[in-house]
């Protein structure tokens, strides 16, 4: 009989590993969003070298598996002397920073396309009206373009954020002790296959479920114009 004790202990060990998963998730979304904003800006800048670079960036990071990107950064970079002598070496030595760097770059590839689509969806008339009122430059971006684009981007961005939770499971392959790698360790030690993986799956699922709820609520908050009017 599979004891409840074992299930409870497994659950406690896996929950104890959740902070690592969440840290990698949060930091890579934060940096990924920043990189994505830069790449989007380059892509729509109209300056040829910039937009070519942005296209190449998006092509590479969307066209290849995250796993091989992660391995290039974690296993590949240390083997070239240049990287070992650069100022980044203290970071590239740590699996945690490699994981964040690689996940951030990968999500930036996808996110910048989401941002670009959202920018393209800002109605031309709104921008013209703002210009007619005398807004330009940063004020136009902050007051008109950003709020409309952010609202447009929200549904696709929520999908990307949720898929990032799933992507963090890959860091178990570069010796980080996240939820999945602890579950695999328990399986290895006890030879009990289903229980640890099922509990780990439940933790990921609940986390993603909460995220999805939060995004549904956010979408509701930012789109009052789509709600049915209550008199």
């Amino acid at each position: 009989m599979m004891s409840l004790d074992f299930i409870w202990l497994t659950f406690l060990r896996l929950i104890a590993a959740l902070p690592v998963t969440i840290e990698v998730w949060f930091l890579s979304i934060l940096f990924g969003g920043f990189v994505a904003a830069c790449v989007t800006w380059m892509r729509v800048s109209g300056i040829l070298p910039f937009s070519l670079f942005a296209r190449l960036f998006i092509f590479i990071f969307r066209g290849s598996p995250l796993l091989i990107q992660l391995f290039i950064i974690y296993y590949g970079l240390p083997s070239i002397p240049f990287a070992r002598h650069s100022f980044l070496w203290p970071f590239l030595r740590e699996p945690f920073y490699c994981a964040v760097l690689s996940l951030a770059l990968c999500t930036a590839g996808y996110t910048s396309e989401i941002f670009r689509g959202a920018l393209a969806a800002v109605p031309r008339g709104q921008v013209e009206a703002a210009r007619a009122c005398g807004m330009s430059g940063f004020l136009l971006f902050r007051r008109i373009i950003l709020p409309i684009a952010a609202r447009q981007a929200l549904p696709a961005y929520s999908t990307e954020v949720i898929s990032m939770t799933k992507a963090t499971a890959l860091v178990s392959l570069i010796t980080l002790w996240d939820v999945l790698s602890v579950a695999l360790k328990i399986r290895n030690d006890t030879l009990i296959t289903y229980t640890p993986l099922l509990i780990a799956g439940a933790i990921y699922y609940v986390f993603n479920y909460i995220l999805a709820r939060v995004f549904v609520w956010l979408e509701y908050v930012v789109s009052p114009h789509l709600r049915r009017r209550v008199y």
Binding site: K166, A169, L173, T193, Y204
Partner: peptide
Amino acid sequence: SLFRGLPELLVIYFVYFGSSA
């Protein structure tokens, strides 16, 4: 909703270890 909410790597491990077990 289940298989869209679980990490792909976990699903692959589960199918591999699970079907072998």
